Structures are given as C-alpha cells and as structure tokens.
Simulated scan of single mutants.
Amino acid sequence: MKAGTLRKGRGAVISPDGRFDAWRREAADDGWWNEDEAAPATELMVDTAKSVITYNTSPDIPYDRTINPYRGCEHGCAYCFARPSHAYLGLSPGLDFETKIAYKADAAAILRRELARKNYVCRPVALGINTDAWQPVERRLRVTRGILDVLAETHHPVTIVTKSALILRDLDLLAEMARGQRVHVAISITTLDADLARAMEPRAASPRRRLAVVAALAAAGVPTAVMAAPLIPALTDHELEAILAAAREAGASSAGYILLRLPHEVKPLFRAWLDSHRPGHAEHVYSLMRQLHGGKEYDSAFGSRQRGSGPLADIIARRFRLAVRRLGLDAPSAPLDTTGFRPPPQPAVATPQMSLF
C-alpha cells in the first residue's frame, strides 16, 4: 500500500506490518500506482473456534466474559484500539483489519454447547466489544443474529456496544429481552460532525443516524446509553457536552466516555490518518495524550488506560460529571436479571447402542 494513500470507504492510510512478523516492508513509489485500486473489496475468512465466550479478569471493565462474532471490522475507524489484534492472524492492523474479516460461522451452535454445560454459571455477557458485532458484513452473514437468538431463547442477559444502525434489525429480540431486564445497549458516538465522522469512521453510521438508533431503542423500551468514545484530545473532546445533550434528547438514559487509546500499531496508524485528514493536528493530539498518560502516548495500566491521569484527565472527568448530572444521565442502570437463565438441552451424545424399538 502506498504510504499516505486515501482510499474511498477505508480508514487506514498506511498498512504497517504486524509486530510479530519476522520481516518488514517499506512502501516505495515506483510510478506504477493505479488510483483505480484505491477501494479494495472485503475478503471473508471463516474463523474456527472451540469456544465463542472469552473470559477476562480485567479490574477496570464491568463484565467478565465477551463474545466477538468477528475479527477485524469493516467500519474502518482510524482510531480503533482493536486493530493490533489482526497481527495475531499474520495480517496488517492497517488496511487488512478493515478488508480481511474473519467470522465465526458456527458461533450460535458453539454458544449453545457452552451454555448447556453443567458447570456454566450465568452472568451478563458483553457482545461485540473488540469489534462491532453489527458491522456491514453482518447484514448478509447474520452471525450476530444467531448468537442473539440463542441468548434470547435461554434468557441469558447481554450488554451491547455498537455504532451501527443495523442493530435495529434485531429490535424484536432486544425489546423482548428488555421486558425481562436482560439487555443493556450503548451506542458509541465519537463526534457530531458528519464530515469528520465520514473520514474517521468511513463505513459506520452517521452521527445523526446513531442518534436515531438511540431514539428507536429507547422508544422500544430498551435501556440505552451513549458512549462518547473515543474522546480525542484537540479533535473531538470539545464536543463532549454536545454529544451527551443530543443523546439525552434522543432518549438515552445513561452515559459514559473513554479516551482515545493508542496501543501498539494504532499509534502510527492514527498519526498517519491525522497527517492525511487533519494536517497540523497530529503533534497537538499526541502532546495532549502524553499529558494524559504521564509522558507516554499510551499507558496500558488498568484504571488509567481508559480515562488517563493527571490535571487534564481530571478536567475531562469533571466536565463529564457535571454534564451527566445536569442532563439526568447519571442514574445507575438497573441490574440485569440472571435468575431466569434456562440452559439449552444437553447435546445428544453419539452411541453405538441401538434402540430397542
């Protein structure tokens, strides 16, 4: 990929090699660049797995298990903290992350087996946390819909974060689960600036469409929060109060925020995006990131990786607290009900024993 290339509908402008690769490539302009190649198609790969539930013990997140139907994300968000995970597949966290998507084709069947285990203990599962479970390819693959079918059938509680309007396709299940206090949904809104969103999140729903999703979910009785995420210093942080106010007007009942995260390959990827789309902003953004993380552009330590630390982080946190209190977005969400969980039947075990009749 030619360095600094803007590709229609794609977020990455560079494609760095993964940190586990034993070799490195360097882009060189030999005069043979063809602009017609600027919009690569999405390639799909089947991701085979024995389990779809991933467990964690991170002390700064409110859930201990997640399900991610996809690896990689067509939304192409330039800032996505999940991009480095594509290095585990031997692929670039740049363009490969948004064009080479792995999906768990048999996720629903595997989930059913996991929930049927005798030692399974029901607790809320977070759906689509690493990459968006309702990204564009879900429209035809319907992997997430299959997972949601199983969760609804077994009365298993679920929390969801998405920036996709496609979630409204599944409003029938979500409304049913909401009536049993088994679902919370959070809609991520990074900016209200449509032009900035189109460049930074090229295949995600527009800010206006996301607010419409908040309104539709709330109208159907689904507890809906807004996540001002990621909050990007010197680029979107000034919009914090406006995002919260717009979401409250649309019907959101609670709110949260997460600062921009720059792990591993995201650091050069987002800087390259800034250089291409917002010339002159990069050093200001990265200087403020260093102020938020004790001189480093990213700190992976639990407790500070999502909110930062120091005076600037305190100012942002205070702004958020004042805004949610003024808007009435500070009420705690009602706890999800785990008592109604109904394990699916144990799968039949093959046996050579013939039936008597």
Rank of each mutant, 00 (worst) to 15 (best):
R325E: 13
L312T: 07
A225K: 08
P268R: 07
G303N: 08
H284R: 12
R290G: 09
S300M: 13
R342V: 15
H284S: 03
R342P: 04
E283D: 14
H264E: 11
L269F: 02
P345S: 11
P223R: 01
L231V: 15
S276A: 15
S254Y: 11
L269W: 06
S254E: 08
E239T: 10
E249V: 03
G251F: 10
A242C: 03
F302W: 14
G280I: 07
L288E: 14
F320C: 00
K296D: 15
A331C: 08
I258D: 09
R325I: 00
A246K: 11
L269G: 10
G251K: 08
A242D: 15
E297H: 15
L329I: 03
E241V: 15
W273I: 02
Y286D: 10
T224A: 07
A255V: 09
P223N: 02
M227I: 00
L336R: 08
A323K: 03
L260N: 09
A323F: 03
P343Y: 07
L260F: 02
D299T: 01
F270L: 06
T236L: 06
H264N: 11
I315E: 15
E265A: 14
P344C: 05
G295A: 00
M289K: 12
I243T: 07
A246Q: 08
A301H: 14
V266G: 04
F270N: 01
Y298M: 12
H277S: 13
P332V: 13
R307M: 02
L327S: 06
A250T: 01
A255L: 10
P268D: 10
L240C: 01
Q346M: 10
P233D: 05
R248E: 00
R278M: 00
Y298H: 15
A301F: 05
P263D: 14
A313K: 14
T338I: 08
R290C: 04
P345Q: 10
A323D: 05
T224S: 06
H284N: 04
P311T: 10
T339I: 05
T338G: 03
L312D: 11
A317P: 01
G295Q: 05
A255E: 07
R325G: 00
M227P: 00
L244Y: 09
D330R: 07
L336Y: 05
R305L: 11
H264K: 13
T224G: 09
I315D: 14
A225C: 08
P223F: 02
D337Q: 05
R321T: 14
L259A: 05
G294D: 15
M289V: 08
D314M: 06
I315G: 02
